[in-house]
Design a protein around this nucleic acid. Structure first.
Length: 749
DNA sequence: AGCACGCCGACT
DNA sequence: GTCGGCGTGCTC
């Protein structure tokens, strides 16, 4: 072992060794030397291979490396103070090994893009001062008026704000000169830190504490969480739509904030509506930070760095906010815990719910999982006593359950959208000056373009899917890759001019509605219509005004919004959720339907829900009509238990894809054989290894995709075998033509 | 993931 | 003879 730099000059300084993780798919960390001690969690710049990388110091090396390679020194220490706390580092270590993701990449998924470069945060950080313990009781000579004034000012500002740290700019505004501060620093009466600017914490605003009085169930929920203060405890809050979960969250937040502590509120991707943050903001006289995906880079970084500097703080964020630094974290709340957007499906795969629970455990704090329709995993955890199960059974707002009607759509012709009775209901609602929601989980005009003569269908040339017709752009778009093409005039197969759209998407529903209800505004809300910044907000404002109108949209309409004058929800085309091969599709469909139903009649007005289906007798609708999610869950769980499916068996998918159709399949086959041999050799009956099979869409962007599903009732056994599989996979290099990934707790197999 | 190295085939 | 495509292996 040798150190590259000149040791002679540095001899008096001890050499430190650190493990550094970089943002690359490497399943190990690398050891670097430093003449200066560095805190764990700081960013550093290091040479790796032939390039320069930003890395995170994740550990102190326990031993000086004994092999014969040359250790290089760290080029530069980027951060004066860690950007990741020890707690977050521990969480990332756990997550990285639980999910079989490279530590560096895992850590970097939580770091804002702005901080992924080596740029020092000079533009972001500002100087701040706080009084030292020595400074608190210091007696200054009577002629040092400026210094004692300065101390007094810092003291006052510190007590009126929520932090001991007072920004230098603030002090300058109070006529305190830099020179005075320097003298106080020299006497160690104050100390200096670099902190991110405070501009992004919303200042405590006007208090509006005339909160609604809670009913018994609600206040029980609040007190259960408070009672478990400083204890690791998972609590499921199962509250029917409108039962006032938000009030519960609010009161929990208020309690902990009053104590000068912090609360982390995680919400689904599109659930982070201004509505929710406004509500919390006006009800809690404390600062709040929201972290969502479409913030400008710099602003996001600024907010992210800010969270650790403010006591009495609520952070509201999506998935990745689980790893923001909150030293005074007292409680985690995971709203809509069943929502699948908490699971990252691309790139680094992890589930925020699992990380949140792990974090609560590491920190010994309670975690509240809220939902009207809990995931069967969470329900089972509650059932088996691992989580406490609380229920909110009463609609707190006083609104009644919506009237639910299942309409048989099997006799409609191919070009008919609504049954007569549905049209009638829409007309009536508009006549009553109320609003209608039409929900269809498919964007575009129609999902297929077909030749009426020879039944040729326009398929994507890169994927095994049909192209979607988009009238707005007058093109055929693939929803699985970037491919777009013009709509052909004639059939490329038989030259017939009769090409017709098959099926319905939001665009087509919109145009149908415009024909049928020309006197009312039709508003479309899907990914295509909300691409511009602010367009979502504009739609929301229109709906809040209460003008009678029809809102047509995908999934995105069903989350988080609260429009008091919306009284009718119509659900179209949910039938593939009934018969999908994915075992979770029924669970997800019912969760979705109940959520959509919850959109109508949220105020005093009676709500109404119409489902149009070709299978009106499907048992799922019986549960839906009675809003009986627990009943459904019970049946479904019996079924899952019988089949050895989650949550009774834990699963992992080993996914492999290649640009050549055979490669990934062949390599997976040999892994399958290897794993089966291992299981056989050890005589383990506790593990099930599936056959190598094609993914639901076998070819996507020209990648041929296959998977093996490994499952076991024992988490320990599953991971034991995943470790074996992982060892094997590490010998198969991931190249430009072949990729693999282990997907622990997959949501789609 | 980058990047270099090295092996092969093509082309002034 | 050399330019460059791509498969392979390494990064403290």
């Amino acid at each position: 072992m040798a150190v590259q730099n000149d040791l002679q000059l540095q001899e008096t300084h001890p050499l430190h060794y650190y493990e550094v993780a970089v943002n690359r798919p490497l399943f190990q960390t690398y050891t670097y030397a430093s003449f200066q001690p560095i805190s764990l969690g700081c960013r550093v710049q290091v040479k790796l291979g032939h390039s320069t990388e930003v890395g995170i110091v994740v550990a102190q090396s326990t031993k000086a490396p004994d092999s014969d390679f040359t250790i290089t020194t760290i080029d530069k220490i980027i951060d004066p103070t860690p950007i990741l706390s020890a707690e977050i580092l521990t969480l990332c270590h756990w997550g990285s090994s639980y999910y079989f993701q490279p530590l560096g990449e895992f850590i970097f998924t939580f770091i804002p893009n702005y901080l992924k470069q080596a740029k020092l945060l000079e533009s972001l950080y500002i100087e701040a001062f706080e009084i030292t313990s020595k400074g608190k009781y210091a007696k200054l000579p009577s002629q040092a008026i400026k210094q004692s004034d300065a101390l007094a000012t810092i003291q006052t500002l510190a007590t009126t704000s929520n932090s001991n740290l007072v920004a230098k700019t603030t002090l300058n505004q109070h006529d305190i000169k830099s020179d005075t501060l320097r003298q106080l620093l020299k006497k160690e009466l104050i100390q200096k830190s670099l902190i991110p600017p405070y501009a992004y914490t919303t200042a405590p605003t006007q208090t509006n504490e005339n909160s609604l009085t809670l009913n018994q169930e609600q206040s029980d929920a609040v007190s259960t969480v408070i009672k478990n203060q400083n204890t690791f405890k998972s609590i499921l809050l199962e509250g029917v739509t409108g039962s006032g979960k938000t009030e519960v969250y609010l009161n929990i937040c208020r309690h902990f904030l009053n104590q000068g502590q912090q609360v982390l509120l995680l919400v689904p991707e599109i659930g982070l509506t201004p509505q929710l943050s406004e509500r919390l903001q006006t009800q809690l006289p404390y600062p709040m930070i929201t972290l969502h995906s479409d913030l400008a880079n710099k602003e996001r970084a600024s907010r992210w760095l800010q969270t650790k500097h403010s006591t009495s703080l609520v952070v509201i964020g999506t998935r990745s906010a689980i790893a923001c630094d909150l030293p005074k974290l007292a409680c985690i709340i995971l709203d809509e815990e069943h929502d699948s957007s908490f699971k990252q499906q691309e790139g680094i795969r992890y589930h925020s719910r699992s990380l949140a629970i792990k974090r609560a455990q590491l920190k010994s704090i309670p975690i509240l999982l809220g939902s009207a329709t809990p995931s069967l995993e969470t329900l089972t955890n509650a059932e088996q006593g691992r989580y406490q199960h609380l229920r909110l059974t009463k609609r707190a707002t006083g609104a009644n359950l919506p009237e639910i009607e299942i309409q048989d759509s099997s006799r409609l012709t191919a070009n008919q959208v609504f049954t007569d009775s549905t049209s009638e209901a829409i007309r009536n609602t508009l006549q009553k000056q109320q609003q209608v929601l039409v929900f269809i989980n498919r964007r575009g005009f129609a999902p297929t373009l077909q030749c009426s003569q020879c039944h040729w269908v326009a398929d994507c040339e890169h994927c095994d899917v049909a192209l979607t017709i988009h009238k707005a752009t007058n093109s055929l778009d693939c929803h699985h890759c970037e491919h777009k093409q013009p709509i052909p005039r004639r059939c490329p197969s038989c030259n017939s001019p009769y090409m017709s759209p098959l099926g319905f998407g939001t665009e087509r529903i919109e145009s149908e509605l415009i024909q049928h209800f020309p006197d009312h505004p039709i508003i479309r809300m899907d990914r295509d219509s909300t691409q511009n910044r602010g367009s979502l907000e504009k739609i929301r404002q229109t709906l809040l005004e209460g003008t009678p109108c029809i809102l047509v949209g995908t999934q995105m309409v069903s989350k988080g919004h609260d429009f008091p004058n919306l009284t009718l929800s119509v659900v179209l085309n949910c039938d593939n959720g009934l018969h999908n091969q994915d075992f979770r599709s029924k669970e997800h469909l019912l969760q979705n339907l109940i959520q959509v139903a919850g959109r109508s009649g949220r105020s005093k007005l009676q709500g109404q829900v119409i489902i149009q289906t070709n299978y009106p007798d499907h048992p799922l609708f019986v549960h839906f009509k009675e809003q009986d999610f627990p009943g459904f869950a019970k049946e479904e769980l019996t079924h899952r238990k019988k089949l050895g499916l989650p949550p009774f068996h834990h699963q992992a998918a080993i996914r492999m894809q290649s640009l050549m159709d055979n490669q990934a399949f062949q390599k997976l086959l040999s892994l399958e054989k290897y794993l089966k041999d291992c299981v056989y050799a050890q005589g383990n009956q506790n593990l099930d290894i599936s056959l190598t099979m094609p993914a639901a869409i076998e070819r996507k962007s020209n990648w041929y995709r296959y998977l093996i599903v490994v499952s076991s009732p024992s988490r320990k056994h599953l991971h034991q075998y995943l470790n074996i599989a992982h060892e094997y996979l590490l010998k198969i290099p991931r190249t430009k033509k072949l990729k693999w990934v282990i997907d622990v707790d997959p949501l789609d197999t």
